[in-house]
Design a binder for these strands. Sequence first.
DNA 1: CAAAACCTTACGGAAATCCGTAAGGTTTTA
DNA 2: TAAAACCTTACGGATTTCCGTAAGGTTTTG
Lengths: 221, 221
Amino acid sequence: MFKKVLISDDLGSINQGVLSVVNKLNIKETQQVQYCDDAYLKIKKAILDDAPFDLLITDLSFVKDHREQKYSSGEALIIALNKEFPKLKVIAYSVEDRLQKVRLLINLHNTNAYVCKGRNGLLELEKAIQTVYKNKIFLSPQVAQALNPKTNLEINDFDITLITLLSKGFSQDDISIYLKNKNITPSSLSSIEKHLNKLRIQFKANNAIHLVAIVKDLGLI
Amino acid sequence: MFKKVLISDDLGSINQGVLSVVNKLNIKETQQVQYCDDAYLKIKKAILDDAPFDLLITDLSFVKDHREQKYSSGEALIIALNKEFPKLKVIAYSVEDRLQKVRLLINLHNTNAYVCKGRNGLLELEKAIQTVYKNKIFLSPQVAQALNPKTNLEINDFDITLITLLSKGFSQDDISIYLKNKNITPSSLSSIEKHLNKLRIQFKANNAIHLVAIVKDLGLI
DNA sequence: CAAAACCTTACGGAAATCCGTAAGGTTTTA
DNA sequence: TAAAACCTTACGGATTTCCGTAAGGTTTTG
């Protein structure tokens, strides 16, 4: 079994629960942090000390507070860690169940498991740890279909960008200018209209307001 | 100190954390549930058995699953309990920090404490239990201002109706027709525009989309 | 009671969104 | 490689939102 595990989650109560699972699994050394930056530093330090962590269990969303953070989310942390320390095993433990996000983490950033917090979260986490230890990938049942290539993945990043900008009060004209400035294509007003129209149909929304409301309810933005 | 406590939260990991706090406080009997209906039944049963609970610590949002529930949220549970068993002390333990909601629970439904899940959630929960035991109300610092009467968080029901209808895809014209049908005044398109304009200013929103997004984020709709 | 303040409603013009059509470019596919 | 499929962009018109002004009614206030 793993020898040295780091738990990263801003909610103390979650940390407690995860800890109880880890303890049950006969893991010798466990440490906890509540900030992504602390996780990064601890992992780096441990390698320098020649006593690296085997496994990181991390939340994805961290509430911002007064402490300025280099890594403000679990994703940012995972991406950085995967580049620098590809050998470290990582389990994401999150309330989110967006297939898009799961797919991104597993396929692009070599995350080893994605466990959804929920009624059976701790049970699944236990399974995840055991599965990852055997060098296999674990997904919670709710997101298991994420890796199925025929699962039509909702909407892409561009769409998310569009709706996010809308929700921030940008007019479609503003969005066009914004995208042009960033050299992102498509950026024409016409294309933006087309994409939003497609999204309205897809989400059965009457208008842009409705679309933003629906997508917000789904937690996609 | 309290003698018999019930913890209600759908996330197992949270339950664990809360449990550790309760145990620290020298409370003799603790029980846990993951569904609001179970909480209600356990509390009712305990009273019939002449061994009632002193305190309920409950989450507010419960993820729906296959099990059909009479009480689908912590609020619904609290409201029902307060009517039937007004003596039971209740602590809400939630990630939400909407002042509106806090005010509602404390003032209307006699909730005794509102603790925000967060980095210091368990610490605050401990304080909350002790404070409630002394028959005082406890609020997490982030929501402490909720009860301050000069905190103006009010937009009225009509405003909420307008924004809610917007978020459901109604055009302003649709809203006008809808209100006329329901004999609600004002109902003219012009008045609706005026009210929404006022709200846009109040919430510093650029347009209706932005307004709906902001108000959704605030949890007002 | 009368003035002031407020609210609802109407109207008109500018701006933005919605929606279809069409041209030209790129990628996919047979 | 040529046809098909797809994508971006442009444009025009209908509809809706945004915003100011103004008239008439109700409530508040001195």
